[in-house]
């Protein structure tokens, strides 16, 4: 069973590995440095939101990008995580920083509950159920006695300066984003990741070569639920007040899908490109348009990408790189042929 998750990695020289990883590590350290040096609250908070979405989109990416099973209701896991932490604070006064892992476990349990009926069968049932279950969970949260319905739950503010709070969450979400990206990178290069890709490409064939397709999908979905739950728990502490409509906003589900599809689903770099890009463009558009026009524009972009650019921006990038490599290879063989002719 372990061999499913721990991976024979490709052999590569140490210098090559460092060369390849250097840009990413550099970017990470620049961002970490900015957390100390940056003094603009707005920028710190926006970047914090970007990191939050990177973590969510990477979590979505595991089953949605690699496995091809789309989750149109990521906000369900996120909101359940936020509410778990908030309710635990409300009744036992435990800080969300301590209960975030528990929020993750609750969301993972919900993910399993959704996955058991829908991931045993193939096709679009999972996508449809995740799309419509947000609505049901939101109504339940509105009506349950212990969630205080539409009143919502207030959390205790941290005893820090505003800048200190923004810095704290900047680092927390940066750490979340980095860890989840690392996890997805590891998954991409593991047998587990290959199993997911096999499921996406041809589920019959995947089963024939011995992949336990249903279990693999369940685990991927639970991982996504866990990450979204943890992030949701931290988010509750960040905004200090949660209520059903805002916490289960369809916009969050939509953003996650947009970011993954535009950046490139099924690659670990995709969410890193998609999340900042979508938030940046959305912010820029917000100045001139209302949020509805904004979403309408994004939905047209998503339709066009789904139809004409399957891999999103990462897909374009790899295709461009491959095309260049092929051209270089073709040029090389031609040169060799010219050499042969000159010898004759």
């Amino acid at each position: 069973m372990l061999s499913l998750f721990f991976l024979p990695s490709t052999r590569e020289s140490a210098s090559g590995r460092i060369y390849r990883r250097a840009p990413w590590l550099l970017a990470l350290s620049v961002l970490a440095l900015y957390g100390v040096l940056g003094r603009q609250l707005f920028l710190l908070s926006t970047l914090g939101t970007v990191f939050l979405y990177i973590a969510l989109t990477q979590a979505w990416n595991i089953l949605g990008g690699y496995g091809g099973y789309l989750n149109f209701g990521m906000v369900t896991f996120f909101g359940v995580g936020a509410y778990t932490s908030a309710v635990l604070f409300q009744y036992w006064e435990i800080s969300p920083f301590l209960t975030a892992p528990f929020a993750g476990i609750t969301s993972a349990a919900l993910a399993l509950l959704i996955g058991i009926p829908t991931l045993r069968i193939r096709g679009a049932y999972f996508a449809l159920i995740t799309l419509i279950i947000t609505f049901a969970v939101q109504i339940l949260v509105l009506d349950m006695p212990f969630t205080q319905g539409a009143l919502g739950i207030y959390l205790q503010p941290l005893s820090l300066t505003p800048l200190g709070v923004e810095r704290l969450f900047y680092y927390l979400f940066l750490a979340c984003a980095a860890l989840v990206t690392l996890l997805v990178y590891a998954i991409e290069h593991s047998n587990f990741g290959w199993a997911l890709v096999a499921i996406r490409e041809d589920e019959d064939a995947a089963e024939i070569i011995g992949i336990r397709t249903v279990e693999v999908k369940w685990i991927a979905n639970c991982l996504a639920g866990f990450v979204a739950g943890v992030v949701g728990g931290l988010y509750a502490q960040r905004i200090l007040y949660i209520e059903p409509t805002g916490t289960f906003a369809f916009d969050i589900s939509l953003n996650v899908v947009l970011m993954a599809v535009i950046g490139g689903a099924g690659t670990w770099q995709g969410p890193l490109i998609g999340a900042p890009l979508v938030l940046l463009v959305a912010d820029a558009l917000r100045v001139t348009f209302t949020s509805e026009v904004n979403r309408a524009i994004f939905s047209v972009i998503v339709i066009l990408i789904a139809l004409f650019i399957p891999g999103g921006i990462m897909g374009l990038w790899t295709r461009w790189g491959r095309g260049r490599a092929e051209k270089a290879a073709a040029g090389g063989t031609q040169g060799a042929r010219a050499d042969e002719q000159s010898v004759q």
Binding site: L70, A127, R200, E292, V302, I303, L307, P310
Partner: peptide
């Protein structure tokens, strides 16, 4: 007709995009 040629997940994404598009045009 264009969706016939693409993978299932992409078709779903496109239909999802269509839903969001119609909903937001309706809201506008």
């Amino acid at each position: 007709t264009r969706l016939e040629r693409v993978a299932q997940a992409q078709g779903l994404v496109a239909m999802f995009g269509l839903m969001v598009l119609i909903e937001n045009l309706g809201t506008i």
